[in-house]
């Protein structure tokens, strides 16, 4: 019974993945229980086809140096770009390098966004580097990183 439901869910996941033509990762077999492991190195390798990325001052990554609560860490990424048809930011990837699944989000932009900026809140399991990996329309890869120290404490 449980097993059947599990496969039913798996089936629907595959179906949806097929409908959305934007997966940058080939292997998306989702586990419903247990760590969904995916290292930062592996992801970087797949996305950049082994080329890696260049740290660039064009990329601004804003995150707190110390987060008093790993469950909600605000992250903002801004990339200097004219956002025209010929020169725009294609994707902003955000990684939590030491999370079991290092991938947080990949945001695929278009010139219609007019501004290459994205923000969200992420969960960090421990003190680690947060990395913004940027895919430009010319195929180059830029990056920026920041270390975030996660403290656990407080009352309640």
């Amino acid at each position: 019974m449980q097993r059947r439901e599990f496969f039913k869910k798996m089936g629907s996941v595959v179906a949806v993945s097929a409908v959305i033509p934007m997966m940058s990762f080939a292997e998306e077999a989702k586990k419903l229980v247990g760590p969904n492991e995916f290292s930062y190195e592996k992801a970087l390798n797949i996305i950049t086809s082994g080329k890696g990325a260049t740290a660039s001052p064009k990329v601004t990554l804003k995150a707190p140096e110390i987060a008093e609560n790993g469950a909600v860490v605000p992250v903002t990424v801004e990339v200097e770009s004219p956002m025209t048809e010929s020169d725009y930011v294609k994707t902003i990837h955000i990684f939590a390098t030491k999370n079991n699944n290092s991938r947080c989000i990949s945001v695929h932009l278009t010139p219609a966004n007019a501004k290459a900026m994205f923000s969200a809140r992420i969960k960090l399991g421990s003190t680690q580097d947060v990395v913004a990996l940027i895919e430009m329309s010319d195929g180059s890869f830029l990056s920026a990183a920041q270390s975030v120290k996660v403290t656990i404490g407080g009352c309640g």
């Binding site: 707190p64 140096e65 110390i66 987060a67 008093e68 403290t151 404490g153």
Partner: peptide, 8 residues
């Protein structure tokens, strides 16, 4: 060292 800065 554990408490956040004003910027944070």
């Amino acid at each position: 060292q554990f408490s956040m800065s004003d910027a944070d």
